[in-house]
């Protein structure tokens, strides 16, 4: 009996495998195309229909990495790591604090504040760009990372607050009582119960902050103009000009490199996602 059951389970699993792999191929094809193109000589990139490069060249990597006027792409990577790290830190701290307040604490006007938070997300950013620019310019922060980092420490991205709120609300209230019985106040509750138990949400916040900050270029375009402060996203735009020649080879090569940290971070962090709450157990 048992053996049969396992057998049919295997069969079904392999079906799932086939479906998942096929769909996975569609998902990953652009990446493969990007990587393959980055090794093709410039004239071959668009002229050849073959997926594999006829001749493999590293010239785009060397050329791209060299960057511009002595500032290499390595510096862009360093800058971006700094920026992204700060943003992650800011978002996790500030958003989880606000989320905790919204989800568990009782204070007047709570629902109104929550509604206001949602509303702040509903205005297209194109119309706030200029007032915001004026504001940061008055503070003399243009051409620094402050306009990009400070908002994260002030929990301006409601997306993450709301996300963490949803997760905290899924944590059973009885657990709170246990902490309270041990004589813990709201701060203890936050640090010892809520933060550990909403870990999947915090990890998600980190992953998204990493990826979105890494890719967001409009804010960076407006506030960072000095090449020494350039981020990867800006460095990549450097290869493109709608009125002239595009350096596709270098763009593809550096895009490939820039996807590596994203990929690594995703794989690294998602381990926590999977193991999240199940191993820790609900009984905490």
């Amino acid at each position: 009996m048992k053996a049969v059951k396992i057998g049919s389970g295997r069969l079904r699993l392999s079906w799932i495998h086939i479906i998942i792999s096929l769909a996975g191929l569609i998902m990953i094809y652009p990446l493969l195309w990007l990587v393959s193109s980055s090794f093709k000589p410039a004239l071959e990139i668009f002229n050849s229909t073959s997926f594999w490069p006829k001749t493999v060249t590293l010239e785009h990597y060397l050329q791209g990495w060299a960057g511009l006027s002595g500032v290499s792409f390595g510096q862009f990577f360093g800058n971006t790591f700094f920026l992204v790290g700060m943003c992650m830190l800011g978002n996790v701290i500030a958003c989880s604090m606000a989320a905790y307040a919204f989800a568990r604490l009782d204070f007047s006007l709570r629902n109104i504040w929550f509604a206001i938070m949602l509303v702040t997300m509903m205005l297209p950013f194109h119309v706030t760009v200029i007032p915001q620019y004026i504001l940061f310019n008055k503070l003399d922060w243009v051409n620094t990372y402050w306009p990009l980092i400070l908002p994260k420490f002030l929990a301006v991205e409601g997306f993450f607050i709301f996300l963490i709120v949803q997760f905290i609300r899924s944590i059973p209230r009885d657990l709170d009582e246990a902490v309270k019985m041990d004589g813990g106040g709201p701060i203890k509750l936050y640090l010892y119960l809520i933060v550990p138990l909403s870990l999947p949400a915090l990890i998600t916040t980190m992953i998204f902050t990493f990826i979105w900050t890494w890719n967001d270029f409009f804010g960076q375009l407006l506030y960072i103009s000095e090449i020494e402060l350039y981020t990867v996203a800006l460095g990549l735009r450097m290869f493109l000009d709608a009125m002239g020649q595009n350096n596709w080879g270098a763009l593809f090569a550096m895009s490939t490199l820039s996807l590596i940290p994203l990929f690594v971070v995703f794989i690294f962090f998602q381990r926590y996602l999977i193991e999240g709450i199940t191993t820790g157990g609900l009984k905490g």
């Binding site: 510096q75 360093g78 800058n79 971006t80 790591f81 700094f82 992204v84 790290g85 700060m86 992650m88 830190l89 996790v92 980190m206």
Partner: peptide, 12 residues
């Protein structure tokens, strides 16, 4: 995070 911020890119 902290390593990211201060270790890798701190000097730059």
């Amino acid at each position: 995070c902290i390593i990211l911020v201060f270790g890798i890119a701190g000097c730059g």
